[in-house]
Amino acid sequence: MMIWIGLAGTLGAILRYSLGRWISGKLGTAIPWGTWIINISGSLLLGLLYGWHQSEMISDGLWVVWGTGFCGAYTTFSTFGYETIQLLTMKRYLSAILYVVSSVLLGVAAAFAGVWITA
């Protein structure tokens, strides 16, 4: 089991890096759109998995591998914090506040939507 959780985490981390680079290539780096989209989409996916697990449509194993392993590693809190501090250091206070508030609000809404759809 441990090896599968780790491998799902490997996949999540690689996808986060690749997708993050692709998004910032498209949308620029003034706002950390990459992490923003990743954290919100990962919250939606974890919500879906949680709902499916609650209604016993997926096993405990799948829930841990894809939930804890993949979604956990795909999304990130430390980069989110680091990017916010960088915005504050650049005196881009409004961007920093909007980044934090929208990440949390939309992330929670996405997780809620995922649970609501599948539960």
Partner: peptide
């Protein structure tokens, strides 16, 4: 560190 911390959980 990115995978250690998590936003979705």
């Amino acid at each position: 560190t990115g995978a250690f911390t998590t936003f979705s959980t």
